[in-house]
C-alpha cells in the first residue's frame, strides 16, 4: 500500500473541505429555490468518498453514492465539481449535460453513469468489473451505496455473482442508519452489514466512517485484493446523516423527530473537524493554512455558482436525437 505523504494528506483535507463547501452551496441554492431538482446532502459522509477515492487510478470505474450527488467521490478522483453545480442548475455544462438534474457521469474519470434506484449500482458494478476483468488491464470498480441499498435483491445477486467469478469490485456501504425516514435497526436482520459478506464468501470489514484515513486504509486493502484477482470485498462505514433525507423534508425517524442529542453526539466526531485536528496536532496543517484553504474553497464554490448560472441550458431540440445512439 502506498504510504501517504504530507501533500496527500493536505489534498485529502482540502477535498473534505471542498465537499463540505459544495454541499453547503447546493443546500443554499435548494433553499433559495434555485435548484431545478432535489438535493440529498452528504454532510457527515464526506470522509468516505474522499478516503476511498484518493489513490484510485483514473481509469478505475467509480459508481458514487447519491448523497452529495457524487460530490466527494468525483472531487477525490479529480473531477471539477463545478460540473455538479451546473447539472443541478440544469445547464449544458453539467456532468449529465443538464439532462437528469443530478446524475453523475464523467466517463473520462471512470464514472460511466449512475442510476437513481438505490442499490441498483451493485449489479451495474458487476458489469463494469466483468468488463475490467475481461480487458485484463488491472482496472477495479468501486461502488458506494447506503444501508438501504443492501436491502434490495440487487446486493445479494451481485455479491454472489461477483464472488463466484472473482470480479475486481469493492463495495462500500455507508451505514448512516437511516433509509429515508426508516431506521436501519428496525428493518434489518443483522446489526452489522459487514457480516453479510461471509454469506458470499468475501471479506467484510467495519470501518469508522468519520475517519478519512481509516476509510482510505480499508479501501486500499480491498482495492489491492481486487486488482490482484482475488475478488470482491464489502466495507461497511459507520456514519451518520446530519440532515434530512433531502432538503426541505422533515427530519424524522419513522414519523417522529430524530433525536437532537444523537445528531449532536455524532457531530462531535465530524469527519472534517476530526481530520483537521489530527493534522494540526501533527503539524501538517496550521491555523493560517486552514483559513487559507477555507477561503480558497469558498472562492471555488462561488466561481462554480457563477459558472453554473452563466452556462446555457441544453438545446431541447437535441433531446429527441439522444434517445438512440447512432
Amino acid at each position: 500500500m502506498k504510504k501517504l505523504g504530507k501533500q496527500d494528506l493536505l489534498l485529502m483535507y482540502r477535498n473534505l473541505v471542498r465537499t463540505r463547501k459544495f454541499d453547503e452551496l447546493n443546500i443554499r441554492m435548494a433553499t433559495e429555490g434555485k435548484l431545478l431538482t432535489f438535493y440529498h446532502s452528504c454532510q457527515g459522509h464526506e470522509a468516505i468518498g474522499v478516503g476511498a477515492c484518493t489513490g484510485l487510478r483514473k481509469d478505475d470505474y467509480l459508481y458514487p453514492h447519491h448523497r452529495g450527488h457524487g460530490l466527494s467521490y468525483a472531487i477525490a478522483k479529480g473531477v471539477n465539481p463545478r460540473e455538479c453545480i451546473a447539472e443541478h442548475l440544469g445547464r449544458a455544462t453539467g456532468w449529465g449535460g443538464g439532462i437528469t438534474g443530478f446524475h453523475t457521469c464523467v466517463p473520462e474519470f471512470g464514472i460511466l453513469g449512475v442510476g437513481a434506484t438505490i442499490g441498483s449500482g451493485f449489479v451495474l458494478s458487476v458489469g463494469f468489473a466483468l468488463a475490467a476483468k475481461k480487458r485484463g488491464e488491472g482496472q477495479i470498480t468501486i461502488m458506494f451505496t447506503g444501508d438501504g441499498g443492501i436491502q434490495r435483491g440487487q446486493f445479494h445477486e451481485a455479491a454472489n455473482m461477483a464472488s463466484v467469478w472473482k470480479l475486481p469490485v469493492v463495495w462500500v456501504v455507508e451505514n448512516n442508519q437511516m433509509a429515508w425516514f426508516t431506521p436501519y435497526r428496525d428493518t434489518s436482520a443483522v446489526e452489522d452489514i459487514a457480516t453479510l459478506a461471509a454469506s458470499y464468501n468475501m471479506p467484510g470489514e467495519i470501518v469508522d466512517g468519520m475517519d478519512v484515513l481509516a476509510v482510505h486504509t480499508a479501501v486500499q486493502k480491498a482495492v489491492e485484493r481486487a486488482r490482484s484477482g482475488e475478488g470482491p470485498s464489502l466495507i461497511e462505514c459507520k456514519t451518520y446523516r446530519y440532515r434530512s433525507h433531502s432538503e426541505g423534508r422533515p427530519d424524522v425517524s419513522h414519523y417522529l423527530p430524530r433525536s437532537k442529542e444523537e445528531i449532536a453526539k455524532w457531530k462531535e466526531r465530524d469527519p472534517v473537524k476530526l481530520f483537521e485536528e489530527k493534522l494540526l496536532k501533527e503539524k501538517v496543517l496550521t491555523k493560517a493554512l486552514i483559513q487559507k484553504i477555507s477561503q480558497e474553497c469558498d472562492a471555488e464554490a462561488e466561481e462554480a455558482e457563477t459558472f453554473g448560472f452563466e452556462s446555457p441550458f441544453p438545446d431541447p431540440s437535441n433531446l429527441s436525437k439522444m434517445v438512440y445512439a447512432p
Binding site: Y61, L112, G113, S120, F122, V123, L124, S125, V126, G127, F128, A129, L130, A131, A132, K134, R135, G153, Q154, E157, A158, N160, M161
Partner: peptide
C-alpha cells in the same frame, strides 16, 4: 437482476 445488470454495466464499459 445480476445477469441483466452485468450486461448493462459491461456494455457501458465497452
Amino acid at each position: 437482476l445480476a445477469i441483466a445488470g452485468a450486461t448493462v454495466g459491461a456494455a457501458m464499459a465497452g
